[in-house]
Nucleic acid binder design. Structure first.
Lengths: 211, 211
DNA sequence: AATTATCAAAATATATGATATATTTTATTT
DNA sequence: AAATAAAATATATCATATATTTTGATAATT
């Protein structure tokens, strides 16, 4: 893996998981040391992240981590619901046995990880990975790369607000989504997903660190 | 405007309007001369375009213009319909007098440009600009920056397939969309937009250069 | 004879450090 | 306190060095 690619993954992850503070300036000199990369390589990475929306580039004045806000959380939640509802519909319709296999497999890994949280404690990075992979599996037969890619970026941006583990309600919702998928119950899945996301928004707002 | 920014605009535009051929390799050395930029600046630009999906970056093997295909056109058309339907609904609901002003203004400019095509010939770049600004105005009160930005990228990618002017049907559809907007007729607008986009897809397919 | 494997040279891409340009801060003067 | 100039800091661009991939020639294998 190239220096640029691994640096990209690290910085992207550090933004999502709050290692780099929202709205914090990203000074090239200090990042050069922190990530062991040259300015040019850093700039390539920051340009990529800027067009994904994880970084804002203020022309001639450098880069900063994209801010977080209640408004932005609500927008991302709504957009995720819109994209994921549609993608689930299509995917449930077209999903074959291979698809069911992917869904069951992804759910198994997610559920096991969620159980492990109770004993070993939460690992947000691992949880995000399996959560993402489960929702991705659910929509993986939607037939549209563009839709899946768009959804994936929205999901990752959304996850900046979902860093705290919310416990058993989430686990039950994932199980219910699995059941709906195997029954091809699109309406049920949409309804559960809406609750899933809205309760996450409510939880994020209840912490009260946003404005 | 910085060298990087203007180069970005030019290269992005050259991809959308087919000056740079789909699937064509983007060699840094030759681009350096064509655009008068250094490799570093070019790489920043190509990285940005890669994460938007206009360019594909094959690790260690450089960059190429994103390919076009019937499948991709269909995906983008569907995604645009999904996003724009939802955004119109919200925007029609929330749109106030200022919004109506923006819509009327954008339509006026688009309609005038479309009329001018008959006498002065088509200028795809101008047409895209005003077409984009009209649809943007329609959804401008949707209340979600994330939705508008996502829509904007999808619109631009979609436009790679809409380079040929299609004539009076399009003009009538834009007029009908304006009427629906001012009447807050969401259902009507959705139906017209669907036709608008689907007939554009049909037209692109009828040319038969895609596969 | 045709195909595959090996290797060196050329072409190309990636990464770096240095320089030029722009922005912000500080100090000085009005 | 406001305005301006100088210094300090940071960003943007460039030219170059390093690493990778591709190409083409030769040798080995089927």
């Amino acid at each position: 893996m190239s220096a640029g690619d691994s640096g990209y993954q690290r910085i992207r992850s550090d933004i999502i998981f709050g290692v780099l503070n929202p709205s914090g300036r990203l000074k090239l000199d200090s990042m050069k040391e922190d990530y062991g990369l040259s300015v040019s390589t850093l700039r390539e990475i920051l340009n990529r992240l800027a067009s994904e929306g994880f970084v804002v580039a203020e022309g001639q004045r450098g880069f900063e981590v994209a801010p977080v806000s209640i408004q932005n959380l609500r927008e991302l939640a709504q957009l995720r619901i819109l994209l994921e509802h549609h993608a689930m519909s299509e995917s449930f319709r077209a999903g074959d046995m291979e698809w069911e296999g992917r869904v069951v497999s992804a759910h198994h890994k997610l559920a096991a990880t969620e159980r492990a949280i109770l004993t070993a404690g939460d690992d947000p990075e691992l949880r995000k990975r399996y959560d993402g992979e489960f929702h991705q599996a659910l929509i993986s037969s939607c037939g549209s790369r563009e839709l899946m890619q768009t959804h994936s970026v929205v999901f990752d941006k959304y996850f900046r607000y979902a860093l705290q583990y919310r416990g058993s309600a989430t686990v039950a919702q994932h199980q219910a989504l699995l059941d709906c998928a195997l029954k091809r119950d699109t309406a049920g899945a949409k309804s559960i997903l809406t609750d899933h996301i809205n309760s996450c928004v409510a939880h994020a707002l209840s912490i009260g660190t946003l404005k």
